[in-house]
């Protein structure tokens, strides 16, 4: 009997918030049916995740020019999900804006971009953190040695989701048993790390931002993750109890 999307999600939430032994072992029996993946959508979402990852990084010159260079390609996405196309301020304004929102303000950080800060006592590296680190490693990734960030930084999470989608697309035609583990990872990151963050995070941005850029991109992030169910149902080709009409 094929698992519905809802029961899959339930499995994910039912899992412990702490470390678990060997994720692969658990899912290797459920092989992946290659015909189910909506490849086009997966590629689009992969790129959107990656672009959002760039947006929520500190805008160095390199990052800034990537953001500026690809903004047009995401016009539809921002119009639909953010309600407008974000206006990119000059880099000399965006850098201080980024720091004052996400790094250090006068004694505090208004919108901490770390998943841990939206759980428990609001501090870094909460219970879920090591589980995340484990998921990332078992999916074949680790933080680059040059990156002084925590794995639950929003930009890392988004890039990770993007990479997972990439793996799905690339290995779609193979009979790699780990593809199911890949889907579990994608859904767990989306639903247990990013989705719980987006509401508070965007509220904080709205209260403290001087420019619209992060307000609009934050709104797009929020709406995208509020819309995650139908997107994943269609993209992964799962049977759904409630969102079947999307298939039509």
């Amino acid at each position: 009997m094929e698992m519905s999307f809802e029961s899959l999600k339930e499995t994910i939430f039912a899992q412990s918030r702490t470390l678990r032994p060997g994720m692969q072992d658990k899912h290797e029996t459920s092989a992946w049916d290659k015909n189910r993946l909506d490849v086009e959508s997966a590629l689009a979402l992969k790129n959107i995740f990656f672009y959002l990852s760039l947006i929520f990084r500190y805008p160095t010159e390199q990052i800034y020019s990537e953001i500026a260079g690809h903004l047009e390609a995401f016009t539809d996405f921002f119009t639909d999900y953010g309600g407008a196309v974000p206006e990119l301020p000059p880099i000399d304004d965006l850098q201080p804006e980024y720091i004052s929102l996400f790094v250090n303000n006068q004694g505090f950080v208004p919108a901490a971009p770390y998943a841990s800060c939206y759980q428990g006592d609001g501090l870094l590296m909460s219970d879920n953190f090591y589980r995340l680190r484990q998921i990332i490693m078992e999916s074949g990734f680790m933080l680059d040695a040059s990156v002084h960030e925590l794995e639950d930084h929003l930009a890392v999470l988004l890039e990770f989701c993007s990479s997972l989608l990439n793996t799905l697309v690339e290995k779609n035609n193979s009979s790699d048993k780990n593809l199911m583990a890949c889907i579990y990872a994608l859904l767990e990151i989306s639903y247990r790390y990013i989705e719980p963050l987006v509401d508070d995070f965007t509220d904080k941005i709205n209260s403290y931002a001087s420019y619209d850029f992060y307000k609009v991109t934050g709104k797009a992030l929020k709406s995208l993750f509020h819309d995650a169910d139908p997107i994943y149902v269609q993209l992964l080709g799962f049977r759904s109890n409630s969102t079947n009409e999307l298939q039509g």
């Binding site: 086009e40 959508s41 590629l43 979402l45 690809h70 539809d76 996405f77 119009t79 709406s223 997107i231």
Partner: peptide, 15 residues
Amino acid sequence: KFLGLSSSAIAGALF
């Protein structure tokens, strides 16, 4: 929204 998402952004995004 979702269809809007897939129609753009695929080829455009060569980072």
